[in-house]
Design a protein around this nucleic acid. Structure first.
Lengths: 171, 171
DNA sequence: ATAATGAGTTCTAAAATAGAACCTATATTT
DNA sequence: AAATATAGGTTCTATTTTAGAACTCATTAT
């Protein structure tokens, strides 16, 4: 599979991988959330090659996650900012960082915090249901396939893939 | 930067990229959440090469996200299951899928749903603070660098990277 | 005896990434 | 005036990763 084949996949997770499915893109977005906007700042802070950085910024722009806008003329210079779409990625970032803290431990001190804008208190993220307020995790939620009609995909037989797709919490 | 250089990074997001920072791993985990457990099922459903699948499953096992356990002898066969750590990834998956649905639109129907175990209602995920219950997004939360002591990283000057790291919502 | 299943491994070719040098336009320093 | 610095890239070769297909091995089914 090639990079951009993911972009028109029916699965939203696959499309997400078309954006952040590499080693650098999420780190570029992290820098954006930390306030970095310029090519050289990204490059120096991340240590990514200029070549790859240019390519990734272009991709993120094309995907509508970042926008490139001039901040001066003579000479013309542009900076990269999160779009509305990019900003809405914040909860994913928060959830992922929380998972990694708890499940991929390190002896090093964590180099950032997420704090409330009013008050500056460090946050403790938990995913909930908008209506019921119920906590959403593997205990409370089940991922179920919607049956699809395409007879060419050998081996796919929702809703029961393999022997039992049901009990994920028992795994 | 090489793949496994990310695994001992001080930044939890970088460490997360050491696990899911490629085009396939998250899709493998998606299949796990859908109940897939066997090598050939993953391979046929995803269309990933056997070579890469074997390598990724091994990595996920090493990282403690999946465990490999025998499900029969004669001949000996193993299956892959989510560990506690792997299951705790569910909220990240949910948040990411929600972001992609809303921000990377597609004409195709979404091939799965997340439903409550009790009731089977489709969920509407929102990240909140565990204590206050406040919604956590780019409007309410700020990502701030913790000052680090290492004088070799040219150009890094928290808390104000670039001109203004402060106002991320104004970006 | 032959084919099928399940879980890989081993090849070669193609694609992506690393690392360094180069380019353009302007501004500043010597 | 000439040299150096800043900002944002592009171009090049070498290395690493991934794709794609074929092959292995042990056992069971036909």
């Amino acid at each position: 599979m090639k990079w951009h084949d993911l972009n028109d996949n029916a699965c939203p997770l696959a499309r997400a991988m078309g954006v952040i499915g590499d080693r650098w893109t999420l780190l570029i977005l992290r820098e954006c959330f930390l306030g970095v906007r310029r090519f050289d700042s990204f490059q120096k802070r991340l240590g990514v090659t200029r070549h790859l950085l240019a390519e990734r910024l272009k991709r993120l722009e094309t995907m509508g996650v970042l926008e490139r806008r001039p901040y001066q003329e003579r000479p013309l210079r542009h900076e990269y900012r999160l779009t509305a779409s990019g900003k809405e990625f914040a909860p994913v970032m928060l959830a992922m960082q929380d998972w990694a803290r708890k499940n991929l431990p390190s002896t090093e001190p964590i180099p950032f915090r997420f704090v409330t804008r009013d008050g500056g208190q460090e946050v403790d993220p938990v995913l909930t249901d908008r209506i019921s307020g119920q906590v959403l995790d593997h205990r409370s939620v089940l991922m179920v396939p919607k049956s699809q009609r395409h007879d060419d995909t050998a081996g796919v037989s929702p809703p029961s893939a393999d022997q039992n797709a049901q009990d994920l919490s028992a795994g």
